[in-house]
Nucleic acid binder design. Structure first.
Length: 271
DNA sequence: AATCGCGCCTGACGGC
DNA sequence: TGCCGTCAGGCGCGAT
């Protein structure tokens, strides 16, 4: 569920509750996430002060003076900050009890998420090393994307969903950005002009910023740190709208599987 | 090197 | 109403 805007919404929501707080206790009810939660997580985290909460791609990092807890929400994860006496619900796998008397609680029905401990510099970790640029940073621009696309035959949708090219683009926002830029999702990445890549990059940045501004997209499980849903679902132009009218030209929105993922687009507006 | 396909899980939904 | 098949927003890994 969570793509970059949902993870960023979560980061911004939990940061104020966590920064300068000490982790008093770690409760692990279900360690079998995408990878087993390491047995030394509690030992490394308990007693430590959280000095910053950052995001890289769709990973969240809780930084301490020794290292960082790395979290991923997978397809169905959410994080909330709540009073410690609220009883856990099904799929509430992990609690970090804070010295404020509240807990950071991870819920993840499908358990595709992760919680790892990284000693030292987290950005040297294999999961973070080798990732492409952040889509909202200045080094992600049309010239960069055009250069990376030389000789590439994959669909442009698969191309921008490749985290070595650019991070954070999931299925929803890839579809929406390509619609905004007027590019057909199945077009080969190497057969798109520099001018059109510049427009695509602008579209990606606008779509992501707009989604963050709306608190992300809630389709099923996603809630913000205070339990509210995201409201960007109402802003979606093509995603999940197969058979409905294109908001730009009125043509029926098409659905086609590209790279094993449902892709939504308008044949008239996207070439 | 680039591309493709698989599988980790649970839950929601549609069709019968 | 209930059962069953299909699909879901991610992503690393191994095979080709």
């Amino acid at each position: 569920m969570p793509e970059l805007p949902e993870v960023e919404t979560t980061r911004a929501g939990i940061a104020a509750h966590l920064i300068d707080r000490r982790v008093i206790h770690v409760t692990i009810r279900q360690p079998m996430l995408r990878w087993p939660v390491p047995t030394d997580l509690a030992r490394n985290l308990e007693g430590q002060r959280i000095i910053d909460v950052t995001r890289r791609a769709k990973y969240l990092l809780l930084h301490t003076s020794n290292g960082a807890a790395l979290m991923h929400l997978g397809m169905s994860g959410s994080l909330r900050v709540i009073d410690a006496n609220i009883p856990p619900q099904p799929h509430d796998h992990i609690d970090l009890l804070l010295d404020s008397g509240r807990v950071l609680r991870l819920r993840d029905p499908r358990r595709f998420g992760a919680l790892l401990w990284i000693d030292g510099n987290p950005f040297a970790h294999p999961l973070l090393h080798g990732l492409g640029p952040e889509p909202l940073d200045d080094d992600f621009n049309g010239d960069y994307l055009f250069d990376r696309a030389r000789g590439r035959k994959v669909s442009v949708k698969d191309f921008i969903m490749n985290s070595r090219v650019v991070v954070g683009m999931g299925n929803i926002y890839a579809s929406e950005s390509l619609f905004a830029a007027g590019i057909h999702p199945a077009r080969a990445a190497g057969r798109i002009s520099l001018v059109r890549y510049r427009l695509l990059v602008l579209s990606i940045k606008q779509v992501l910023q707009n989604a963050i501004g709306h608190g992300g997209t809630t389709l099923r499980n996603f809630v913000r740190e205070d339990g509210r849903p995201g409201y960007f679902r109402h802003e979606l132009n093509v995603y999940g709208r197969a058979g409905a009218d294109c908001p730009r030209c009125g043509e029926k929105i098409r659905l086609r599987v590209i790279g094993q993922r449902s892709s939504f687009y308008c044949v008239t507006c996207q070439r």
